[in-house]
Design a protein around this nucleic acid. Sequence first.
DNA 1: AAGACGAAAGTGGTTGA
DNA 2: TCAACAACTTTCGTCTT
Length: 284
Amino acid sequence: LDDGKGEIICSNCGKVVESDMKDLGPDWRSFNDDEQDSRRGGPPIDPLKYDRGLTTNINRKLKDGKGNQLSPKQRKKAFKLRRAERRNKKKDAKERSLSFAIIEIRKLASALNLPRRVSEKSANLYRRASKENLIRGRSREGVATATVYASCRMLEVPRTMEEIAEVSSIDRKEMRRSFLSLSRNLDLDIPPVSPASLISRYASELGLSSDTKQTAYKILERSQEKNLVTGRNPRGIVGAILYLAAKQNDEEQTQRNVAEKVNITEVTIRNRFREIGRELDIDY
DNA sequence: AAGACGAAAGTGGTTGA
DNA sequence: TCAACAACTTTCGTCTT
């Protein structure tokens, strides 16, 4: 199953994957070697093993266990301890939240059949977001879905927000809000959705021959030259182009079928392919 | 009967005051 | 924050295969 893209390219970029991993914490590491589900049950850090409120609180009253006053030296010590502990707790909370988020990301990635580099990138993004305090006021899962979507966009793995929303409990709007916040505050480099990557995905989903796929790419190229692409929903463009390409190669698809696959209405497909056909003098 | 067509009104997202 | 705007959707009657 050549699931759109990703897997194929993935084998070419092993090095990138490798270097990406360097700045990942230890808890992340074992996430990477369990593609085959065998270790699904054993996340890197078992969140259940984490402290569940069993931390010590150092008493504010300046007495020792027997109720005696503490010497100034001892007081200082106690004070330092308290402060160190507060810091640790904060850090712990963040770490814990992070590992939950990573589990969330893994779930999403596996439900969506995403290549590993996507989930890795997502985790990195989440980590950064957490560092920059972008999670405040948002749900962990919301941000997790947003990192996954953002990673897909950055790596040109075609997945829509709808598709991601479908396998999570987060709706599109919330995901979108988090996504926008991510891309703004982490100044992410998000390229516009490239029709080419969509062609590759949907051509195979429609079971079109590779000849037809090639035709589609050609039509796309010519359409781009004539500025028929920008400002339009890329899925409409791709639907229309695939419809045309299929027709030209006698692999006739119904508009409905194409429309359903690319998730756009027949009307839009019609409008697009009419326009493209007219501008490029494609007879159909 | 199924698919294609396109007009017209409605919807949601973007943009600029 | 609001209104204008373009792209897209919904709906539906009609034409074509």
